[in-house]
Design a binder for these strands. Sequence first.
DNA 1: GCTTTGTTTGTAACTAGTTACAGAAACTAG
DNA 2: CTAGTTTCTGTAACTAGTTACAAACAAAGC
Lengths: 335, 335
Amino acid sequence: MVKRATIGDVAADAGVSTATVSRVLNGGAVTEATTTRVWEAVARLEYTPNALTRGVFAGRSSTIGVVIRDLSSPFYLDLIRGIDEVAAANDSLVMLANTFRRVDREVAQVRTMDEQRVRGLIVTTGEATDGRTRRMAENGTPCVIIARSVLDAPPGMHSISLDNVEAGRLMAVHLAGCGRSSIGVVSSGRRTSQIERTAGLRRALADLGLPLPEDAVMVAETEDEVSGAVDTLLVRGRDRGKPLDAIVCTTGRLTVAVHAALTARGIAIPGDIAFVTMDDFPWATALGITVIAQPSYQMGLKAGELVVDRPSGPVELVFAPTLVARTSCGERQKA
Amino acid sequence: MVKRATIGDVAADAGVSTATVSRVLNGGAVTEATTTRVWEAVARLEYTPNALTRGVFAGRSSTIGVVIRDLSSPFYLDLIRGIDEVAAANDSLVMLANTFRRVDREVAQVRTMDEQRVRGLIVTTGEATDGRTRRMAENGTPCVIIARSVLDAPPGMHSISLDNVEAGRLMAVHLAGCGRSSIGVVSSGRRTSQIERTAGLRRALADLGLPLPEDAVMVAETEDEVSGAVDTLLVRGRDRGKPLDAIVCTTGRLTVAVHAALTARGIAIPGDIAFVTMDDFPWATALGITVIAQPSYQMGLKAGELVVDRPSGPVELVFAPTLVARTSCGERQKA
DNA sequence: GCTTTGTTTGTAACTAGTTACAGAAACTAG
DNA sequence: CTAGTTTCTGTAACTAGTTACAAACAAAGC
């Protein structure tokens, strides 16, 4: 095992002090002759500076911490690509952790990020870490919370979110425009974003004279619960005397499961039932699924910039959703 | 901006030396009374140890570096989930970088990983970093190369790969079993894994009396080139007097594009042409696409374990692919 | 009561860098 | 040729921890 060269080895090899080597590396007043000798020594010894030591002195690391709830969602993937883009442009790296939707892991991983003295923290979870993120913000670590509602962003944190009410409204207007009137909703839980989407949908539907009963919304926490939820919605629609002609899914995470539940029952989309869901994905075109797209890559870029640019006060950014109309709601095709 | 508490602050607050605090934190001989006082001080000052400083002393960081060629592929996503699982189990984090298939970024990011003194490095690229990874291995940093062929793993590195020849063979046998005889191949380039898959396919096809001409293989580096490649294959098949009845895609990255190219031409799958591709993905079931699956999550777990367990000699692990038969090759459905 | 042994604690040196300050060399001006 | 200024370089202190070694202390044995 070969020991790594330190700045001291380089200094000795070039016949100068470590201070001079440091100046050559970071830009300071050094003669051209000395500079040349130092760079030659660096090359000869294959010296790679230790970012940890630099971080100790600077009081923080150069990496950006990212804690993701659920790495399997394409939304988060694009988000990370955006963050990574900013990181790469700043000679920085992304330190990633996936909580698998488990609160204990989230707490541990945010703590580890804090221990790593990340330059900034981007969190898509924040269920149980408000105390720590607040303190990190006080300690000068920019913290960004993503995908949670603006409403419940912890103090001191930047917030990046989608206009969830508008997302619901877009769904409502589109479905009504496609002649649908009996709508069922599959939602993923009690997170604010989910509630806001449903609320936006309900309000817009009501404005169009299409009330959405409380029991036309089913919560499915996991993919396993989706099939049962869809069943219940179908039955309730029939019981109500208005068989379902549309299903809305308020989370991209459950799109596959809802789609599978419908096709497994031999339900034709959009023949029998229209289908809209959240978050665009590569296969949506092939499948003709109409979606509400989030600008996830842009959200990632912005999150990265907030960490790098460190604006003074807390920033709140709300992004607009867009509807990508395909065929799953029985859209009229252009002639 | 509140300054963070250091081990010195804790020591002063508890009325002991920093050495004693360190002993309490890391386990050493300390009286129960002292231990209690130290923990109380830690809680009172909300002390969070600095992992950078620890890393400086230990000579390495506790994080695992991962450099990915293309974060958009589901294969890599599962891989990262596997690595992250091992990291979380070891109170470690994943340091992620996405090269976007650009060699300059790859070089810079592997260098940054080295500067960060990652505990180990997992690379899915390794086109231009052989020199550095070899040196990192010499310096005691376990390096794992994934998804490249066993054949060209740089010296000193662990290697995790798929049996690509077997993957090609599985495709050949399956297609022949479904009665297909005129096959076209879309490959993504000159990487060894791609070449081995095509070679495995060709050999197995030859054994079955079904030769695969050189010009029945088209290379498409990007998604944009896929449509043209498919056209060429179609034309050549017709010119040869044996119109294509199957298309093989040797990379999961281009599955969407190949599928789109076929449907855009009104080609029925499997009615007109059978379709097999690499890597399983969530929507494959809904679309009925037959695939060769890689155990990507397991590969990630193993990669993480190689980093954490640091076996002495270089380890070579070859995983077996499995065929997941659905309907895209005109498979006979069970009665 | 004194020595021996074992346990607990503190001092100081160490990790690999950065930087304030002081001193030396070189350059310009009188 | 000296004084003043500028430019370059080295010394030493600093970042936040860990740990080898020595000292202090208490308990047990003689």
